[in-house]
Design a protein around this nucleic acid. Sequence first.
DNA 1: GGCCAACTAGACTAACCAGTCTACTTTCCA
DNA 2: TGGAAAGTAGACTGGTTAGTCTAGTTGGCC
Lengths: 200, 200
Amino acid sequence: MSAVVETPQDARQRLLDAACEAFREEGYRVSIDRIAARAQVARQTVYNHFPSKEALFAEVVRHAIQSVLVTLEGDGDVRTTLLAFSEAYRAKVLSPDGIAIFRTLTAEAPRFPALAKQFFRQGPQTTRKRLAQYLARAMQEGNLKKADPDFAAEMFAAMLTDFDRLRGLMNLQTDLLKPAKSAQVVDCFLRAFAPEKDKP
Amino acid sequence: MSAVVETPQDARQRLLDAACEAFREEGYRVSIDRIAARAQVARQTVYNHFPSKEALFAEVVRHAIQSVLVTLEGDGDVRTTLLAFSEAYRAKVLSPDGIAIFRTLTAEAPRFPALAKQFFRQGPQTTRKRLAQYLARAMQEGNLKKADPDFAAEMFAAMLTDFDRLRGLMNLQTDLLKPAKSAQVVDCFLRAFAPEKDKP
DNA sequence: GGCCAACTAGACTAACCAGTCTACTTTCCA
DNA sequence: TGGAAAGTAGACTGGTTAGTCTAGTTGGCC
């Protein structure tokens, strides 16, 4: 029939894309058949590229982790920098993809502890460390109160997404991405970590 | 054999307990057979009490939700009250049970949206509202800066558990419950919401 | 004693799933 | 032209699952 082998190599890519969507929408429980159908590929083709469902899942997760990382650009003043970071961070973490990755890994962490650990370290942990580095510099330059930068980063990241992520996870409309929230959080954080100004 | 009908009514209770443990440990995917075995009950008995696996799951979740609520006792000064709340809140949310409930509902929210909504409203939402009520009072009494108490409650709850809950969800050792963390967070929060003292 | 309500064991259906295997087709390249 | 590489369809194995059904057992109560 018209089942032409359209492109020799990128069946793999279609497969990864399809698996990504499928896992995102239905979790790990989605069947190989459904993934294959979504990629318009025979089941055997899946096993030509990946030795098992687990391996395919791991590959998808590895890709997904990369897509939720945010960098800090520290050229302006502290408030401006943190505000820009906040917007970007919230946009990624609270996006449908960000929520879905979080949900899937939360659900499967007991089954795939190594993958969960990798996600934790390459995702939230990495973001927190970058943030802490920036905050440490700001502290040394006197733009922030001297304190434990890791703790400060943890607080800041928590304030930015905790509750809204919960809303997203529980499938409630997220009222997302209204910039007011970022600004509110940044100002709250800056009040808690303002430099001690009482030098008489 | 020795299969005496030991107690006529509380087979149901044993069943609920077993289901609670089973769902907590293995998630919704655990089979009815395993739950029945754990309760030392025949499979048919499960269906005598609950029309379906879904119904049993819903019942277990409803019970579990209640067990993660924390109250505020507002007799001392603000810092003391918040500190006591923090300890209790962290102990519950970050306990194995708290993590397990969170994980299971996160995983199954797409499948059981009504249950997820109920969890959100009766769990985190309720806690946040109680907290906001207390904070609003403290603000009016001049013990805290005047601000949106809902926002303040959200920030406080986020700071208390966000990162540690993530660690728990990803199956990493939690370094849990060291009281230092609560104090650190409370002081951070109090810095951000200290009353304006510059009245010349 | 006799009945009822609840429990038990276990067979059974119908469906689903991961993974293997076979036989066939298509494309490309040498 | 001819063969290797990759894809396809579909049968098949062995396992699991939710839920139903049957037949038998037990205990309490009148």
